[in-house]
Nucleic acid binder design. Structure first.
Lengths: 342, 342
DNA sequence: ATGAAAGCGCTAACAG
DNA sequence: CTGTTAGCGCTTTCAT
């Protein structure tokens, strides 16, 4: 393995000169730059990442805090990761996967104190998130993919859940639906203060009121059978409902199956809109799900770019960016039949 | 940030002593060990990862080579990652996510030469994989999650696709099915030499022959609509088929939808077995998919442990480990009706 | 525009 | 069982 000293000797210059052509931190004459580049090429030189990191106090690695639960990742989360990885690589950064949830605060403490990572991307953010407090105390650079209850002073990039719920409800109302159920994330998520669950719940309430229509929110496990149970509960509560909003991809499929078995036709008897859903999952259903398509990769990439800019600047001011999901009408929504009869 | 020198001073010992209590590389008296630990605690000391890496020539980071295509990861791939992350962390290692496919050879070259990573876990292995040759040339430590065409001399952990196909076919044959279609990965995967696609194709042929039954293999895109088209093609080719094997989770759901629309009852008219499928996805379907459940997390964890052992040993011998998928009978398979009539 | 040299914080001989 | 010390390979003053 060739070192910088080897390159310097070969090019007939000093090590510092080689270093400077590499980092571009000071002007170098064209002639020596070429000599150095030639020497590096001949030796197949590649800078040693650890040495560089030690001397410069920067690893060029950012940590992705993503609790891996064993239940797997949804398409949206995967897209966050993909977008972040891509954006990091374009900037010459690497991404380290750290399975660190709100409860693993001391592990994060270790991670952040080791000086292995330049900054953090925090996923699966809770409304009250221990990781955020900790990172703040440690004066670490970080950007949230998601938001806490009180995001003032923080940097975060998130899906605009309020807007997404508004748009989804508006779509259903526009089709004449006046009794709408919202199948949210699980009871546990709600209780745990998971941001998307809480925010959409509030936005749903507000939307109902604004449009002067009625509805219920029902929590559901993120499984097909959870969705089945949830729609059952919803129909008990509101027997005449014609519109359903689902937060949860797996539950959405369960709901379609349950409605079919109840001999209710989708979209004509009941219309269903799935939220924060990828096109791939939407097409899994039959009919294909009308969905609010999540800007997953864009969110991941945006968060990464914000973090990298801060690492460069040393900037630490508040930054908020909300990206809306966009409505894609497919086969599960239509004009309310009940509406037509009138 | 406290350094080791600070700790040494505080504990009244030399830096090397501190280093040795940390690494456990040489015997230390109980008394000094305690003094050192106390000093570390008081100072909130945390070793600097870069400095340690530079001096020891080990980063304690392993690279996970996983081409992120933007199409997202299936449940099985996600489970590989989860299992690997978990196993790495238990051993005090970190995992770096590197979106490096067969075509990004020079990027891998850079990565491997930077001395940032101690070893590699290679995912999405092709039968002919440039990354494998390269890693070998560079004398890097690596373990494949998957296999190349000629895995002799390599370390790999993989799903036992041959066994899985055998078991799936045996299940269908045991239920009386004698005309079976196999909906494989896409044409492109087959052409690209994607291991699972090729291996299962061969195993399927062999199984047909062994049981003396007939069938066809049809490639399919990994989408619901792809599955629909594939089953259509299969039924044209074999109108009397009663059994279907599907490699591909999304396609499996498409197949169920298509069969339902063709007024064919699953499982009674046609039985369907999904392969290398997670329980979560299997439950998404209705009826729930009978599936060969993939040992995803176990594979990821096993591969990681093998790699870590090699990093410790310097071992570089051949190592192969194949984990079978296990049959879980749910709602999409049953005794062949055609069989009963006879 | 270039060089010399002092670290960065730790590990691992080497020397007791 | 413990201390001294020479690097690991690079960045970055300070000189020139």
């Amino acid at each position: 393995m060739a070192t910088m000293t080897d390159v310097a000797r070969r090019a007939g210059v000093s090590v510092s000169t080689v270093s400077y052509v590499l980092t571009g931190t000071r002007p170098i004459s064209e002639a020596t730059r070429e000599k150095v580049h030639a020497a590096m090429a001949e030796l197949g030189y590649q800078p040693n990442a650890m040495a560089r990191g030690l001397a410069s106090r920067r690893s060029n690695i950012i940590g992705l805090l993503l609790p891996l639960t064993g239940r797997g990742l949804g398409a949206t989360e995967t897209a966050f990761v993909t977008g972040a990885t891509e954006a990091a690589r374009e900037a010459g950064y690497h991404l380290m996967l750290c399975s660190v949830g709100t409860d693993d605060a001391d592990e994060l403490q270790t991670l952040a104190t080791q000086r292995l990572l330049d900054g953090f991307l925090v996923m699966e953010v809770q409304l009250e998130d221990r990781r955020v407090e900790l990172l703040r105390e440690l004066a670490a650079q970080f950007v949230l993919i998601g938001r806490t209850a009180e995001p003032a002073g923080l940097a975060c990039v998130d899906i605009d859940f309020e807007q997404t719920v508004d748009d989804a409800v508006a779509h259903l109302v526009g089709l004449g639906h006046r009794i709408i159920a919202y199948v949210n994330h699980s009871e546990a998520s709600l209780a745990g203060g998971y941001g998307p669950a809480k925010r959409t719940a509030a936005a749903f309430e507000a939307a109902l009121e604004r449009h002067g229509i009625t509805g219920v929110m029902v929590p559901s496990e993120d499984t097909a059978s959870g969705g089945r149970r949830a729609i059952g509960t919803a129909r008990e509560l509101c027997p005449r409902l014609t519109g359903v909003l689902v937060m949860n991809e797996n539950a959405a499929l369960g709901i379609l199956a349950e409605l079919r078995e109840a001999a209710l036709d989708v979209p004509w008897d009941v219309s269903v809109v799935s939220m924060v859903t990828s096109a791939a999952v939407a097409d899994l259903a039959s009919p294909a799900l009308t969905a609010m398509t999540s800007p997953g990769a864009a969110v991941g990439a945006a968060a990464t770019r914000v973090l990298l800019r801060r690492l460069a600047d040393g900037d630490t001011s508040t930054y908020q960016e909300l990206l809306p999901c966009v409505l894609e009408v497919r086969g599960t929504t239509a004009e309310s039949r009940r509406n037509k009869k009138k």
